[in-house]
Design a protein around this nucleic acid. Sequence first.
DNA 1: CGGCATACG
DNA 2: CGTAT
DNA 3: GCCG
Length: 534
Amino acid sequence: MIQRNGGELAQTQRSADLLLTSLKSSSRIKRHLKNRQVPIADIRWLKDCVKEKELLPLDKYSIPVDDVSSRSTHDTSSTDSQGGSGDDKQSHANKGNDINKQSHTSKDSSNENKRDSDNYYLPKSSDILTKEFANAEPDVLSYEDTDSSNDESNSNDDGDSDDIDPNYNNTRYECLRPTPLRSKHNGKLVAYLRLLEKARELETNDKSALAYRHAISAIKAYPRKIQSEDEAGKIKGIGSKIKELTRIYLETGKVPEAEALLSDEEFRTLDLFNKCFGVGPATGKAWWDMGYRTLQQVLDHGTLSNTVRLGIQLLPDFIIPMKRSDVEELIDIVETQAASVNDQLLVTPVGGYRRGKQQSGDLDIVISSKQEIDMSDILLSMIDRLKSQGYIKHVLWKSRIGPSTKQDRLHKQRAADTDDNEDQVISKSFRRSGFDELPKAFTCFMQPSTGISRQVDLIIASFEEYPTAVLGWTGSRQFERSIRDYAKKEKNIKLSSHQMITRSMPERRISVTNEKDIFDALDIPFISPQNRNC
DNA sequence: CGGCATACG
DNA sequence: CGTAT
DNA sequence: GCCG
């Protein structure tokens, strides 16, 4: 639960920033206490934080323990420090991690844990660089519906049949039905399937991963608790394999194949590696095969591009989730700076934030204009400005600005290939010969209030492109795949974040002025951003 | 048994 | 190969 | 891994 919400579980009391306990008697607490430097609080703080989706003040939960050092000599586990993490060593924890961390590196190395004022306890998730999973306690399956709400119970109304809920749009196109952020009734099953999807992803079984994603989206959209394997089997996206997994889950409350991943060293290591910007499944696997087991080992011994090195070094911050107020602070900055670059600019936050997520891993912003203006210099102007104002610390990646270079590369590559069908190739490069479409940059901001490094993606869209850019960057990823699939298969329309065009031969651009126009052009019902969480 | 989103560096 | 939704 |  802690880790899922961005916290870090200490292995020993001594390395903890905060102790949680369900003990009520202060003498019993004292008996187990080996670390008096940090706050002690009631375990209910954790549950309430998760419920509220934010870090609550510790005040009401903190447990005072008067000072009489009673060093207990024998350790009876870390009582309620349930499910320790992995490693104890953190000797060189922050080595090479000193880039651009001023305000939030702890004042002294010991166990200072307050990032800001005394109001919030913010977990410092450093030592993720030295985390390794050999002999580590298994992760706990964390399912979104932390809120108990009968995943188990039979809230069975009249019709407990094996038929699917008639309110459910049983389609293979996720974009045709609302999909909320979290499954209301099948959250635990979804959590298991997500593990399997991730495992397939890391093995680069893309098609299999996609199949799991279809099933997951279907279940998230499904309006009641699945009660039987037959009921599950009727849902489009669930075939024989996932139906069987569902049967096992319904009988035992677990999915062993997925459960095993929670304690699988290779899976957990690859998963961690893969969280670094610039590190995909192949790179992660290569590192594993070379014997690396922690990110620190990779930093110390690997030969890395600057981007990947940065990606590793920034990970301890990047994995700290942003609250909506954190996101909004950054939006304000971008809006203010955009206004001073050009007062016609329009700044639109998209991504998970727009879909209503309470916690975000990054922030995506579409920058467009209120009227048709020349946008060609906007990205560089914005980056310059944000840099000089001290907000942007790094540009992890950015697309080229002007026209041309891309064409040259295409031609070169074609020349190398013994080309036969030059028609398509040439038309392709001609099509690109105008101006560049969507320049974009993936940047690292320092958030003023916390000093935490945050990934902010800036996307430039022309006035014309604005609707498709907003649709495309709002996601979710699966929603985008689905609506593009639908456009192609059912309407013979090609949809991207740049444009909508008819595929039948006189390729004509379908003009749209807002998101709704796109849904209308496809003749599908409008789905609000909050319901695009496929 | 073919197809699975699309575009960028 | 990697990035984004 | 599932759909058409």
